[in-house]
Design a binder for these strands. Structure first.
Lengths: 210, 210
DNA sequence: AGTGTCGTGTAACCTTTGTTACCGATTACC
DNA sequence: GGTAATCGGTAACAAAGGTTACACGACACT
């Protein structure tokens, strides 16, 4: 574990902190589609992603979903940080977008390390910052963009985090991610294909115009 | 200044920190409508609100606006915190919603106090948490609600922060806040009035159903 | 091969929201 | 008092997105 940790976070954290993490942290490998956290669930720990990607999404009472953003290698989940401060319940759902390796850190350590390690403080603040910016991005998309632009952006995001211009997914799944209906997505995807921006296949989409 | 400071933040910060704030902080009184910060502007300092309320909004390249949330007495602006970490440019615009009194703290002090005062650390983290939750709320509104519900929610928010069920505003201004057109707002306001949830006057709206 | 399920394309229609245009009332300013 | 600007109501229409229904091919399972 310490090896993968050093590789991803070595330049960030001082040796003593790396050691602390590897002592109390719990290595976890989860397959694609695995649900790491759900809305209303108490927070068990804070994840440090070593490899893979996680989809963070929001749901309302009626079951409508919306993807907020993805987190990747080197990231952590600000919502988790957040919950250590105030309430203990998660406001979001986290689902592994690809096979993912991560370290879970018990929440008790956080305040502790905040006082001790400057690098930890900076990491936490940076994470909050990054997540706030992602949320701003999300808000920009929903508030200012039409569905076809949101769709294209979503496809590019997915291509980016999987590092593959061919996305394995269905129209139905995209519709859920963007909180709209399958018919609408099929319609717009066809339009994007006619514009030469993507290529459609059964169960996959190739993004041309990255 | 130290008096107003103690009154609003005394229970949060230890005496030494309060003293530090009152030494380096700069007291500011701004009138309603005053623009405290704009998108792209470098961040000068971090505001602690003593009295009043500030509207935080986002704008895209085309000039479309959207209100993100309001901050009030006892709050600070997470975007400012955020900018001390990464870039130095503001991502948002801040406009005084009412006459407002605040203390500006130079950004240099932040990292300093983070190491020294536990209460400061907790305040910063709590602020980040609060702001993230507000952003989630905003996303919920835009993503899951129809315009009439968003409108009603906006009116209630405004009533809340001004502590007055009569809102002084125009349909045009509301339309800007919600990134839609005046005609749409007029239409929906009329509907809400017919439903008995509000009462319309020239330049003001009374929220019945708080 | 036969059956059922899943993924996709498409048409028809409805609702919500955005746009343009116009009008009357109120207010501000000279 | 006259004039211009602002504010709000409304109609008519356009565009975007949501809904329902159905067809057809791919695929899985037996």
């Amino acid at each position: 574990m310490i090896e993968a940790l050093k590789q991803n976070y070595g330049y960030l954290f001082e040796p003593a902190l790396l050691e602390g993490i590897s002592n109390v942290g719990q290595l976890k490998k989860v397959p694609e589609g695995f649900q790491l956290m759900d809305i209303g669930e108490p927070i068990k720990g804070m994840p440090l992603i070593l490899d893979g990607a996680i989809k963070i999404l929001r749901e309302d009472e009626k079951g409508n979903e919306l993807v907020l953003y993805f987190i990747e290698r080197g990231d952590t989940c600000a919502m988790t940080l957040s919950c250590c401060v105030g309430m203990a319940k998660s406001e979001i759902r986290a689902v592994a977008e690809t096979d993912t390796t991560l370290i879970m850190i018990p929440v008790e350590k956080m305040e502790n390390w905040m006082a001790t390690y400057k690098s930890w403080r900076q990491f936490i603040l940076q994470s909050y910052h990054d997540r706030l910016m992602e949320m701003l991005d999300t808000i920009d998309s929903i508030a200012f963009l039409k569905m076809d632009e949101r769709l294209l952006r979503h496809l590019r995001d997915k291509a980016m985090i999987t590092r593959d211009d061919v996305i394995q997914t269905t129209h139905q799944e995209i519709a859920q991610d963007l909180n709209t209906s399958r018919v609408v997505i099929s319609r717009l995807l066809k339009k994007l294909e006619n514009q030469g921006k993507i290529q459609l296949f059964r169960n996959s989409i190739k993004v041309i115009d990255l």
